[in-house]
Amino acid sequence: MVIAAMRLNQIRDLLAVVEAGSLRAAARRIGISQPAMSKSLAQLERELHAQLVLRTARGIVLTPAGRAFVARGRVVEAELRKARDDLSALRGSREGAVAFGVGPAVTVPLVPDAMARFRAKWPRAHVRIREGMRTALLPLVRDETLDFTISENVAPGGEAGLQFRPLIKPELVIVGRRGHPLAHAKTLQELAAADWLIFNPPGARGALERTFEASGLPPPKALVHCESYATALALIARSDLLGLVLRELTELSLADRFVQRWRLREKISPPTIGIFSRADTPLSPAAAAMIQSLGAAARALPKHI
C-alpha cells in the first residue's frame, strides 16, 4: 500500500535535496517552488511513516531511515532512467545518458579517444565523468549512481555483485623531481627510505605496496595520500616525494620539464585496469555504447589486453 501511494516525483525530489544539500537549491534545480518541494517531502514521509530528513542551520541531513530509503531510491531512479533510454533507443534516438567513474591512472590513455568514438555515434548524449579511487567509485556503481567505473582490479576473487572486464595493463614508473637527492639510485632498495606519495590508502595493497612486497621489502614510508594525478605531479615536482605513476603522464610536456623517471633493475608489474559494472543489471544503450568505445580505445593502444 505504501508503494502504491508513493509517486516517482517524490523520490526524484528527495534525491535532488540530498544532492543539492538544501530545499531551495533542489527546488531551483528541478524547476519547482520551495514550498512545493517541502510539500513533496512531507507527503513522502507521511506515506512511509518515517522522518527522512532533518532541517538544520547548515542544510538538510538524512536520518537513518532517510539513508536507507535513499539507497533504494537511487536504484529506482537509475532503473527508470535506463528504461527511458531503452525506449528512446528503440525509436532511434541517441539522446541517452551515461555516468561513469575513472581512476586517475586511466584518464590520459583511454578516455579522450573513447569519448571521440562515443560522440561520433551519440552526439547528443549527456555524459558525466567522476574521477576517484576504486574504493570511492565501486560503492557508486553498486547503488547505480554510476553505470560503471574504470579502475584497477586488486581483488583476486572479484568484487561482490560486480563483474569485471579487463581493458589494459599500463606501464608504471617511479618519478621524482629533477635534481632529487636519490636521482642516481638503481634499485628499489636504495629508494626504500624515501618519502612517498601514494594513491591508495595504506594497507589497500595498491601498486606501490605490491611492488615493494614483490621485492621482499616492507611497505614504503607514505607521507602523502593523494587521489588526483594532477595534484600528485605538482607535489612531486616541488618536493622530495617519490611516486609510482602511469608512464604516459611523465611524457606530457609540462610533467617532463619538472620530473624525472627512475630506471631500476627491478621490474614493476603492471596493474590490470578494466571496467566494473553491476552483474545483475543490464546497461543502458548509452552506457553500453561508451563501454564499446572504451574497448576500441584500449585495443588501439600499443599495449592492451
Rank of each mutant, 00 (worst) to 15 (best):
D113S: 15
A83L: 15
W262K: 01
N9Q: 15
S40R: 11
V175E: 01
D195W: 05
A5K: 05
D143H: 07
V75R: 09
Q10G: 03
L23K: 00
A25T: 11
A298H: 05
R24D: 11
R12S: 14
E227D: 15
P271N: 06
Q260C: 08
G274C: 11
T281F: 02
L223K: 08
R28L: 12
L264G: 01
S228H: 06
S239Y: 09
R177S: 08
P170W: 05
R165W: 00
G21Q: 04
K186H: 10
L90M: 14
H184W: 01
S93K: 13
L80S: 09
R177C: 13
C226E: 15
A288G: 15
R94M: 07
L23A: 05
E79F: 01
A5R: 08
D280E: 12
L294Y: 07
L283T: 04
T281R: 13
L80N: 08
I198N: 02
A255I: 06
E248C: 08
S151P: 00
P270D: 10
L252I: 08
L264C: 04
F258W: 12
A125H: 04
I305W: 10
M37I: 07
A68M: 09
T135G: 10
A237T: 09
A136P: 00
L217Y: 01
A65D: 15
A114F: 06
L182V: 05
I305A: 13
R263Y: 07
